[in-house]
Amino acid sequence: MKTKITIAITGLNNTDNPGPGVPVIRGIRESEAFDARIIGLAYENLEPGIYIPGIIDKTYQIPYPSAGSDELMQRIFQIHELEHIDVLIPNFDAELFTFIIGKERLAEKGIRTFLPTLQQFEEREKTNLPEYGEKYKIKVPNSKAITSYHDINNLRQEFDYPLLVKGKFYDAYLAYNPEQVINHFNKISAKWGLPVIIQEFVKGTEVNVIALGDGNGNTIGAVPMRKQYITDKGKAWGGITVSDQKMLDITTKLISETKWRGGMELEMIKTSQGDYYLIEINPRIPAWVYLAIGAGQNMPEALVQMALGKEVKPFTKYDIGKMFIRYSWDMIGDISQFEQLSINGELEL
């Protein structure tokens, strides 16, 4: 018999820069263990996941973390009084800090999470990548956090062009000269704030691993994927599971040493010499999680089980050669739905 449960989920922006919310929900909906009521938590009124039939039972608007951590938490508690949330799965990098530092407050109210510790979260930040690589003996590209134009003039001393200009949470652009770095610096800092990260460009194939750690050093699941179709934002629009043992070894070693708790995505570049460079760790389930589910590892379900304190046996296999292909699909909504969300801050389809 399935367990009835209420799960609140963010990241409903299924746009060309998609959040993981909708595929996480699909995994939970397909679970044999749970009969879930899904509460969507939306920052914007037009996040597509809100309007997709069969995905969310009820959506509530929440304030951006930039409006203040306390405001966000108060809104979650307000929703909790109405919905009795059992598990909360945040899916945005930018909100994770708030939920990590607030997880005891959430737990006191009976809202369970399964998040990395603050130390795990902070040490893998892009600005700390060189130290991270050194600590865990993983090859990483040279990176530097910059905060002003002045730093751009000195980049030639440390980096060759082209180089990557990255936001602290999202976005990455290739720059071939200082003028392009200035353009990207302005664009990224306006959107994501400072610092902006400059990273050595490593030529090779981009390969990613989605993984789930139990917080005791065990890898509960791991699936490597090669991007087959990449959007101009660098997002995977198509990908395929591969049998890359070296990537899996790097992942399990990293989870074992860091005792990573929760979902994660390792972004790596495999060079033509067969070397792997870690370019980023996303501290949450990635948007392509549905591929892992399709390949036999329902990580959202496993994450919910662990949030509930249940013991989860590690997945031992996945299907190689499973592909995902994203597509866009125009839904027809009604202004009354938009009105409900805008005026009342909640919507039940």
């Binding site: 090669r226 990908g239 591969v242 049998s243 050669g321």
Partner: peptide, 17 residues
Amino acid sequence: SNVAISDSGFVFDANTG
């Protein structure tokens, strides 16, 4: 060993995709 060939001539390298 990681390369599979089908009768139709489709070759798939499971290591690289």
